[in-house]
Design a protein around this nucleic acid. Sequence first.
DNA 1: TTGAAAGCGCTAACAA
DNA 2: TTGTTAGCGCTTTCAA
Lengths: 342, 342
Amino acid sequence: MERVKLTDVARAAGVHPGTASRALNPTTRDQVSRETSRRVLLAAQRLGYVPNTLARGLRTARSYVVGMVVPDITNPLFPPMVRGAEQVLSGAGYTLVLTDTDNDAATERRQVEQLRARGADGLIIATARWEDPLLDEIAASGTPTVLVNRYTASRRLPYVGGDERTGIRLAVDHLVEIGHRKIVYVAGPQDTSTGRERSAAFRQAVRSHGLPSPARLVSVANAYTEAAGAAATRKLLDTTVDFTAVMAGNDLIALGVLSVLGERGIRCPEQVSLVGFNDLPMFDKISPPLTTVRLPLGAIGGLAARTLLAEIEGTGDEDAVVQSLLGVELTLRGSTGPPPSD
Amino acid sequence: MERVKLTDVARAAGVHPGTASRALNPTTRDQVSRETSRRVLLAAQRLGYVPNTLARGLRTARSYVVGMVVPDITNPLFPPMVRGAEQVLSGAGYTLVLTDTDNDAATERRQVEQLRARGADGLIIATARWEDPLLDEIAASGTPTVLVNRYTASRRLPYVGGDERTGIRLAVDHLVEIGHRKIVYVAGPQDTSTGRERSAAFRQAVRSHGLPSPARLVSVANAYTEAAGAAATRKLLDTTVDFTAVMAGNDLIALGVLSVLGERGIRCPEQVSLVGFNDLPMFDKISPPLTTVRLPLGAIGGLAARTLLAEIEGTGDEDAVVQSLLGVELTLRGSTGPPPSD
DNA sequence: TTGAAAGCGCTAACAA
DNA sequence: TTGTTAGCGCTTTCAA
């Protein structure tokens, strides 16, 4: 069960290994006569030759490996991004190595190290914290890297994501349009760019509509989870501010909002409207179906991959794209309606 | 920004590269004096040495790469398995390369080839069809491989999965226990082992309870999707058999069943009970919350990885495990209740 | 216990 | 256009 190698192909075709290599490699094929390259290709095919990527990588100092780091592949936000990236990369002859950090900084560091040990040509990272020393080190190291989903305060690495500000504005516009004036915000954690960006966008949107200052109308969840969303909502309700609509930092937080509304006997959307963020799968099946902001996750992953490839293969003298935002849309469903008329 | 290599460490420690290699490698460290190995380790640490996995792999003919092939990472069934596998593998010093075939056989073949070009030490495959030539070729090639989630008719490769037969039996037992006698089954596609296995288990369970022969009580969906489930349910309802409970081939099919019941004004669980399979995320949030069979997906992925590692690293003279089934449990929720009493 | 040297499979600079 | 040769960074046999 010996593996066929280049020398075997060369021998079978009656040429030197160097020639066989040139014939097999599309970029060097024109250095070889048509007849010879035909013979080599044929022999390779016949013997079932599969080039050894390790050996090639060792010689060319390129691994054709791209690492992608996600906090938790079980979070439905990430699979579509991974998929989008993988399609682009494998189409370009690259292999995607996926690592899941389990939301743990030490694990992340170890895995990035592993990726570098493999000579990864580049990195796609979805785990950025607002302050993130590891990413600053990576930026300093010069490894081609693109952030997705979240970016860092230092903004030292290019970023691809959705246009979150517009997403929040669309949602608030919608609520205002159907009559809401008292809108509260259950924000996501502020140690991520998404949490900060969306909070800022909410404040701005509310202000632009001349609605009451949101200072006391924002409650911050300390994680993007149902439980954290519920806790933040309880805190909000305990200060008994009155409101007719809730904007949630993401869909899972919206789930927490929904459960607390249920607890307190507040009906959605009759008494309080609710908008989420992300449009995760199955949120159209819950009751009430959630109005939410949809991000083009697959496209984000794909564009991140293309951005990275440009950086890896690019000539380097072109101006680099530092940030790309993709358009988002508001998905209207049953969780939003006019405020109670009394 | 030059990368530190073994020779640099050796020079810094004042030893020969061969010695440095021995000191750095845990399995050969005892061939080196304590003092020397201490010096080498220290130098490596100080210089930030990261070994080049490619070079090592080329020399040792081992890549420490395991490929995992899934049909669609966007399907929530797979992320937990991937995660379980990745944790085991990275704990053992292996890197997981994930590939998504987009449910396409040609893509799958191309990707498996890529994985072999990378010298993958083994494969975990979640895409098995009942008749699957590619997998038979892989089996013949001798590449260590473990199937998860589904197996092939030829059973030439070891398989790790959930105990599906027991899952179906638990579900049917539950329905019978709360009073149902007329149970129908909306099966999944019969070109997968899961579709076949569950169908057979249903027939057997029904028979063992002395319920009416299920021949006309089974409708087959041609895919594990909501749409296919809905279509199969319509076919069932159009032949107007009367029943009080539906067992679905999986959760997505159950979703299709639910929507058709809604269409026809049949209430669940008051008029008809419904049981799913897999316990996907969010199915506890739909209305009614779905009673379903839970598989230990993470554990399945983890065990598949361990099985594979045993095969890769094993001495080869031990008897190999050919199949491992993990325990499942029935999760009772709102979609099942006693049949109507009239 | 350590050093010397060969070689894993491939590519690329140089020579012919 | 093709052959020759060296070497990518590492491990491992052999010798000292």
